[in-house]
Simulated assay, not measured.
Amino acid sequence: MGWVSTDNEHEGWAACVAPDGRLSASSSGEGMLFRGISGRYKRDKMMPDYEVVPDAEIVGWRGQCVCGWQGEMWERVISRADADFNHRRDYVSPEDSAHASLKVEDAIHDEWKAHIGPSEALLGVEAAAREYNQAGHRLDKTVAAAKAAGASWADIGRAVGISRQSAHERWADKQ
Score class of each variant (00 low, 15 high):
19 P>A: 09
22 R>Y: 05
84 D>M: 02
65 C>V: 11
86 N>I: 06
101 S>Q: 06
132 Y>P: 05
94 P>L: 03
138 R>W: 08
6 T>L: 15
86 N>M: 12
131 E>G: 15
166 S>P: 00
174 K>Q: 13
94 P>R: 05
72 E>Q: 14
128 A>G: 05
111 E>F: 00
108 I>F: 02
14 A>L: 00
47 M>F: 12
56 A>P: 03
33 L>V: 00
66 V>A: 12
67 C>V: 08
110 D>K: 04
30 E>L: 10
84 D>K: 05
99 H>E: 04
69 W>C: 13
40 R>W: 03
70 Q>T: 15
14 A>V: 04
66 V>Y: 07
111 E>S: 04
21 G>R: 05
85 F>V: 02
62 R>Y: 07
60 G>W: 01
73 M>Q: 11
148 A>G: 03
131 E>V: 15
52 V>A: 03
110 D>I: 02
103 K>P: 08
28 S>N: 10
169 E>N: 15
33 L>I: 01
124 G>Q: 00
68 G>M: 05
153 W>D: 08
135 A>E: 13
52 V>S: 02
71 G>R: 00
82 D>W: 09
130 R>Y: 12
122 L>V: 09
56 A>M: 10
40 R>Q: 13
33 L>A: 02
152 S>G: 12
85 F>C: 04
84 D>C: 04
38 S>V: 00
3 W>V: 10
16 C>R: 14
114 A>K: 03
124 G>C: 00
27 S>K: 08
112 W>R: 00
112 W>T: 03
121 A>I: 04
155 D>C: 04
129 A>T: 12
160 V>M: 06
82 D>N: 12
12 G>N: 11
96 D>M: 01
86 N>C: 08
87 H>C: 02
90 D>W: 12
131 E>F: 15
31 G>A: 02
83 A>Q: 08
51 E>N: 03
76 R>G: 08
